[in-house]
């Protein structure tokens, strides 16, 4: 069980690193969906909540939203705004991977200092969730195109979800579902905004948004 949790958490971390360093939108959306599936496995594996209906509902709803609905919305948005394969990062591949590894190191170091009120079922749980949040933040910073920033935002949210699961026994069930619904609505709205940005600027580069117009 412990090993399975470790493998799932590691796959989450690896997919985050892929999202950070990859420049291909289609593949990124697929990896995001894969990450959603991995996240929905976690409630089943976590020992303290295996038999509760709570875990079941969270797993099913997060699988439906994170692994099916959101990737669909994203790929529709990508199709509608005609995004090519071009690299849209401010820093090149090697540097972003290096930054990602730095963030992973930092989060493993920080996680040692963490004093949690609950015992977590895997040693990797806290560091991986911290790293996922920080990698998501990093993506928000280094990406130029609005749609890859949305992916960064979702990766960050997935990290928060992992962190939340470690406290799941304490966390009210409605809060969890509310967050999922918010994310879904958020991505929905972002899809519409992406369309508008494309319509006005012919491009999704967010640098266009800093130029003033009357």
């Amino acid at each position: 069980m412990q090993t399975l949790i470790d493998i799932v958490l590691l796959l989450v971390l690896l997919s985050d690193l892929y999202l950070l360093s990859s420049s291909r939108l289609g593949a990124s959306i697929k990896v995001l969906a894969f990450q959603g599936v991995m996240l929905s496995l976690l409630p089943f594996l976590s020992t303290d909540m295996v038999r509760s209906p709570h875990a079941f509902v969270i797993a099913i709803s997060s699988c439906a939203i994170k692994a099916i609905l959101i990737p669909r919305l994203l790929s529709r948005a990508a199709r509608e705004v005609h995004i090519g394969l071009e690299i849209d990062s401010y820093i090149p591949y090697g540097a972003s991977l290096l930054a990602g590894m730095g963030v992973v190191l930092l989060s493993f170091w920080v996680a040692r200092k963490f004093q949690l009120p609950v015992t977590v079922s895997s040693r990797l749980w806290i560091p991986v969730s911290l790293a996922a949040v920080m990698i998501g933040l990093l993506m928000l910073i280094i990406r130029k195109k609005a749609i890859s920033q949305v992916i960064g935002y979702l990766a960050m949210e997935n990290g928060i979800y992992v962190l939340g699961l470690s406290l799941a026994a304490q966390m009210p069930f409605l809060v969890e579902l509310g967050v999922l619904l918010d994310i879904f609505a958020g991505v929905f709205i972002m899809g519409i905004i992406l369309n508008h940005i494309k319509y006005y600027f012919d491009d999704l580069d967010v640098e266009n948004l800093t130029v003033l117009k009357d």
Partner: peptide, 18 residues
């Protein structure tokens, strides 16, 4: 090739960290 090797290096570093 350097990209592939950097990714492999990242995996190695990750195993060291873990």
């Amino acid at each position: 090739v350097p990209r592939m090797l950097m990714a492999a290096g990242a995996l190695g570093l990750l195993s060291y960290i873990i």
